[in-house]
Nucleic acid binder design. Structure first.
Lengths: 249, 249
DNA sequence: TTATTACTTGCAGATACTTGCAAAAAACAT
DNA sequence: ATGTTTTTTGCAAGTATCTGCAAGTAATAA
């Protein structure tokens, strides 16, 4: 059998069934596993499949790619993400919300970190799945078209039954006197439940959002524990938040 | 034998069998391998065949290679999606699985259709959220890294408590005698529960998957109700499935 | 931990390809 | 027809690629 023929057959198999196993291919094609492995490697190098240990997967299963340039204030969010990651330890149970900062956390999560994540956000979940050692549990429910997260009583009920070590909460608006606020009733309900559920709540916010207020209140600042921004902890604009009882990172 | 004559024979052989092997041609034509190699090279230079090491392939054989970013068999999947959509009615409760065919359904869903979707697939859910009138409920649980769907007992338990009108099930492998099969234990468990839960199950499959078998069985064909492929319902390769009790669309 | 499985690397035999060349064949002109 | 030119062909030497094996390493499972 010609090499190209063999590779075309492999590619076809991957495209039809989404995955192939190396040893199966070796049997079916009548060549050594080494040869199949090299074929898979070539197809992967050509970007036609995704090579994984013991076989290969169709590329369409990995279409979710996110373009860092499109994210507003990308630099700041990366700094925040790094700080947040420093709080994570192996075997923690971490509740994580949606938003681009949390997406960035999921993206740059150290590969060897073994954490169990609970999330209500579709995009955060998608990104977490790319991580080799993270386990991801999605709290299901009715999906909000705007926020792209699970909302509704079911989610709150599920949140009441768990006790995560940490909640990484993306914020919409944050103010020393008005506390944590947001725009959507459904989202507020979920965030309230998340904060109540977690042992510690970490607020993630770019400094631009400091001192801004939205229409619906989630909670006062003292109900959260840690605030992470891209600024130095001693920065003047953070003093009011430290005074409100938040630990600043 | 004249050179032109020889090349015409080679070209015919390539067009009929999609492939030729250099050594075979040398024997059949009674010329040295070098000569055949030069002939193949000329035909390749003229763009009539594709030269590969050890032989040559017909140009159409390479169709599979040149659809990089596109979904595999996109045309076929669109046809299937349209047929599946014809089954949907306002106010139906529809269970929908993952896979690119279901993604296409979600993408081309008529905007005025008011359907409640239940899904375990992250990407299907994402796409459904783009629809103005569809309500989407995500059945949460532990997420499978490979299939990107919720798996585990929780999901099965949730599925047991609902009675959807329709289940749109993307298939991996389908065979008249071996029934519906798949590659992953967790996925099989979920699909079983989906089929059991729904009043009617619709199997979505491109014709290439017909007659293929994977390692783990989901169910026999008679446990599903409708089969949708891109082929005409009367097509010969569908007869065995109709005989097994499936309605063909 | 150990056992197992998959992967990497290097290597050697096999196979296929390139190049140059000279003989054979074909084409052409006289 | 005959000789000349051009093209084609087969061969040989050297090179490149492919393939399977083996030893060692890394990742995963028990």
């Amino acid at each position: 059998m010609l090499k190209k023929e063999r590779q075309a057959l492999i590619l076809r198999e991957v495209n039809i069934h989404n995955r192939v196993v190396l040893s199966d291919l070796s049997n079916v094609l009548g060549v050594s596993e080494d040869t199949v492995r090299r074929d898979l490697q070539e197809l992967a190098d050509a970007g036609k499949i995704v090579k994984v240990r013991g076989g290969a997967l169709s590329k369409s299963y990995h279409v979710y790619s996110y373009q860092e340039n499109e994210i507003y204030a990308y630099q700041e969010k990366t700094i925040i993400a790094r700080k947040a990651i420093s709080l994570l330890r192996d075997d923690m149970l971490v509740l994580i919300s949606g938003g681009s900062t949390n997406l960035e956390i999921a993206r740059i999560l150290p590969p060897d970190l073994r954490v169990i994540f609970l999330t209500v956000s579709l995009s955060t979940a998608m990104q977490l799945l790319e991580h080799p050692n993270a386990e991801t549990i999605f709290l299901g429910g009715q999906l909000s078209k705007t926020a792209k997260i699970s909302v509704g009583g079911d989610v709150v009920a599920q949140l009441n039954q768990i006790k995560p070590d940490l909640c990484l909460l993306g914020t919409n608006a944050l103010d020393p006197t008005h506390g944590l606020t947001d725009t959507e009733w459904e989202v507020v309900t979920i965030k309230k439940a998340m904060i109540k559920s977690a042992a510690k709540t970490v607020l993630l916010s770019i400094s631009e959002k400091l001192g801004t207020v939205q229409k619906i209140k989630i909670c006062d600042l003292d109900e959260a524990d840690i605030l992470i921004t891209e600024l130095e902890p001693e920065h003047a604009s953070l003093r009011a938040y430290a005074a409100a009882g938040l630990k600043i990172l």
